[in-house]
Design a binder for these strands. Structure first.
Lengths: 244, 244
DNA sequence: TCCTTAAGAGTCACCCTGACTATAAATGCC
DNA sequence: GGCATTTATAGTCAGGGTGACTCTTAAGGA
């Protein structure tokens, strides 16, 4: 369906021409890894309602724009990254939230998106609102509106997608070590993984990662230097890498 | 986000008070099993545009209704089932489709839902539009609007969820045989599964199915009578039942 | 030099799975 | 009543994937 027909099954009290007007927005659950911890991008509200509370970044969908387009635009604005850089971030539709009273001011339907990226810089570049900041996931207090539910859904979704897709590489820079990749799983799942087993699994999955040829190694601070890899072409993970 | 603040990062040409009005609808991809084949519920459009074409059932979200509520209401109306019966069908949000020109008449954002049920009766009960019918999945021609994409997404989603959830029981009546359950997988995936292996997998997964106690057996037409089961309490499938 | 840390190689047992065989219990056709 | 057909159910067996573990290598720091 899009616009239903004039005739049809609608109750007599309902005139499709006078379709109820909705505002449509996008909300962004942007995740990144900073210092081996999962962080979320939050903004502090400068207006009532929920003034002073933290909330997910987002904004209106414009008249000639798709929700995905709006999400990508807001992502660039709110993270302060260049449009070109932001265009490389993994962006994925999560779900749509439409409870009638989720915004006390008016009827707003919001399409939520999840975005992932490697260690992103502090926000603020976009010249954005009062306060925007990366907070370690789990340390944020109650968020405005239904954003707690959205954020929890987003976290659940990426945790699940790590199991059966190659999504983890979206958290990594173009070239990374297997230790960094493992750090993604550990940060999102909140567990420790066995190093050798993780390595075996990743390397035995065709197309998950791809060894970087010439420059042999590099150090991550301490320990033996690690080989470098880039994301392979694969998108699915068969068989999956199940959570312990 | 819901309604963004008045101040903030929005470009100067954009006044949040004059938020762009959208129509919000729901579209339903309703699947059922009829004669061991996967069927989809489609309606024939009686109006331009796409007059005479098949389309997914759906309709407007009402002013004080959530999208999920609208989907459940439309589901009852379009399938012709009682509200009580329709309330038992598995209903799940799929995704939101928002390309600006997906409906040539006006700006419509549609939240798509997937619904599943055991062999459902012929539609029409709802006193609905011109023509509503179950069509074997795959035999439908091009659908109106972007409904081909929605339907394909829905089919991909349920195929994937069969792998790592107990969703298959949603296609079955309250009491069913393992043969019927296997038929769900075969119809959705379009493959044949090994009977003994499927049985072993299902029975060894705690909470997937639950043997029906007293009444021992029953026949499905030919062959040895099969034991009866009902859905267990489990929702996830660990480890998953992967597609061949 | 020794300790710590992390990468990377390798082993072993167990579980799950795919492939396959065999038996039981119903129907329908000679 | 035989007999083929169909489906359910039981059981076997080999191979792959995984968890748990050990060991070696290569860096940095005290």
């Amino acid at each position: 369906m899009t616009a239903p027909d004039q005739q049809g099954s609608h109750p007599p009290d309902y005139d499709p021409r006078a379709f109820p007007p909705f505002a449509v927005t996008v909300d962004l659950a942007v995740f990144t890894l900073r210092a081996d911890r999962l962080h979320v991008l939050l903004i502090r509200r400068g207006q009532t309602p929920y003034q002073g509370d933290w909330a997910l970044p987002g904004g209106f969908v414009r008249p000639r724009e798709s929700a995905g387009g709006a999400a990508r635009r807001e992502l660039a604005e709110e993270t302060g990254l260049s449009e070109a850089t932001a265009a490389h971030l993994h962006l994925e539709q999560l779900a749509t939230y439409s409870e009638p009273d989720r915004d006390p001011r008016m009827r707003v339907v919001s399409v939520a998106y999840t975005a992932l990226g490697p260690g992103l810089p502090e926000p603020r570049g976009g010249g954005d609102a009062a306060d925007a900041r990366w907070l370690p996931y789990g340390t944020q207090g109650p968020l405005a509106f239904d954003h707690d539910a959205i954020l929890a859904d987003a976290h659940r979704r990426i945790g699940a997608k790590l199991e059966y897709t190659c999504l983890a590489t979206a958290f990594c820079p173009p070239v990374f070590t297997l230790g960094e990749l493992r750090g993604v799983y550990e940060a999102v799942w909140g567990v420790e993984l066995d190093r050798p087993n993780f390595r075996r699994k990743v390397l035995s999955t065709p197309g998950f990662v791809q060894a970087v040829d010439g420059p042999p190694k590099l150090t991550g601070g301490r320990g033996k230097p690690a080989a470098l890899y880039r994301a392979g072409g694969a998108t699915a993970l068969h068989p999956p890498l199940l959570r312990p």
